[in-house]
Simulated scan of single mutants.
Amino acid sequence: ELLFQSLSLHCRQCALVTSSSHVVRVVAHSSVFRVVRKPAEFLNRSESPAIIFWGPSTKIGRDAKGTLYRLIQRVSMTYSNLSFFFISPGKMQRFDTLFQKETGRDRKKSQSWLSTGWFTMVIAIEMCDNIKVYGMVPPNHCGKRPQPKRLPYHYYKPRGPDECVTYLQNERGRRGSHHRFITEKQVFARWAKQYNIRFNYFTRFYCVNKNYVNCNS
């Protein structure tokens, strides 16, 4: 059986690296199979990592007993050095409530699907006194002229979909559920001073810090 307990962790300094992470890794239910297929990349990067899974309770909840739950259970037995956590249904609802409070949108009615970045940022805010974010572009990045250089949405899929195309299609999508990446980034930008968050991202030639602080600090 998986051990269900609360994650109690407090850090003075945290680094949040998009499409990756250190010490605490937040994984969507849709990415469980990718984690299992590449354990050397996702499960062996730290001496005592904690992995947090999020998703509908029907897929990964305690009572689901479905394919994903059983898969995570087997992995937990194989990698006894890891600590596995799930975001509870009650906590999932609080993430939805926070999204509506910050954006004015009801997540379900607006057919929005929160991104792993949203979950990771909120968890980091709860655990960390100071957060340095690497690789997350600002909200207006994809609207710049000339248009930014084409980059893959995920670093581990160099031939995958374009980052800006993915952001814009999801932001504007009305049929089906979509991530609202740009809306989320606008919220993160507002949170920056309130929660001591600094955003660092690299262009071809130089490092830019959204709080105008030296990127090497």
Rank of each mutant, 00 (worst) to 15 (best):
T183R: 11
Q169D: 10
K185C: 01
Y195N: 15
T183P: 01
C207A: 13
Q194A: 14
I182S: 01
R172L: 11
N196E: 05
F202N: 14
R180P: 06
C164H: 05
R190P: 03
V208D: 01
R190E: 08
N196A: 14
R204M: 07
I197R: 09
K185D: 05
T203I: 08
R172S: 10
T203A: 13
T166K: 10
L168K: 15
N196Y: 03
Y195P: 10
V187R: 05
R198G: 13
E163H: 08
Y201D: 14
V187K: 10
N196C: 12
E171I: 03
W191I: 00
N196F: 13
A192M: 15
V208Y: 08
F202C: 15
W191K: 14
F181K: 03
W191Y: 12
E184L: 09
I182W: 04
F202Q: 15
K193A: 13
L168S: 09
N200L: 14
K193C: 08
V208P: 00
Y167E: 03
F199P: 02
Y201M: 12
Q194H: 05
R190T: 04
A192F: 13
H178Y: 06
V187N: 04
F202G: 10
G176Q: 07
N170F: 01
Y167V: 00
I197G: 08
N196Q: 14
C207N: 04
A192D: 04
F202A: 15
A189Q: 15
A189M: 15
T203V: 12
G176P: 03
Q186P: 00
T166S: 15
G173A: 11
I197Q: 04
T203C: 08
F202E: 14
E184P: 08
F205M: 11
Q186L: 13
Y201A: 13
Y206Q: 14
A189K: 15
F199M: 09
R198F: 15
R180Q: 02
R175I: 06
I197C: 05
I182L: 12
V208E: 06
E184F: 05
R190Q: 14
Y201G: 12
N196T: 12
F205A: 13
K185H: 11
T203H: 11
I197N: 06
A192Y: 07
V165S: 12
L168Q: 12
I197A: 07
V187G: 06
G176I: 01
R190N: 11
E184M: 11
Y206G: 08
F188A: 06
R190V: 05
R204Q: 12
E184C: 08
K193W: 03
Y201I: 10
R190D: 01
T183G: 06
W191P: 03
H179E: 02
E171M: 05
V165Q: 11
N170P: 00
R198M: 12
W191D: 01
L168R: 15
F188W: 14
G173K: 11
C207V: 07
L168F: 07
L168H: 04
C164M: 02
Q169V: 06
R174V: 10
F181P: 01
R175Y: 09
E163N: 05
T166E: 09
W191V: 04
Q186S: 12
R204A: 13
A189T: 14
T183I: 07
E171Y: 07
T203K: 11
E184K: 08
F181R: 01
E171D: 07
R172Q: 13
Q169L: 10
G176C: 08
N200C: 09
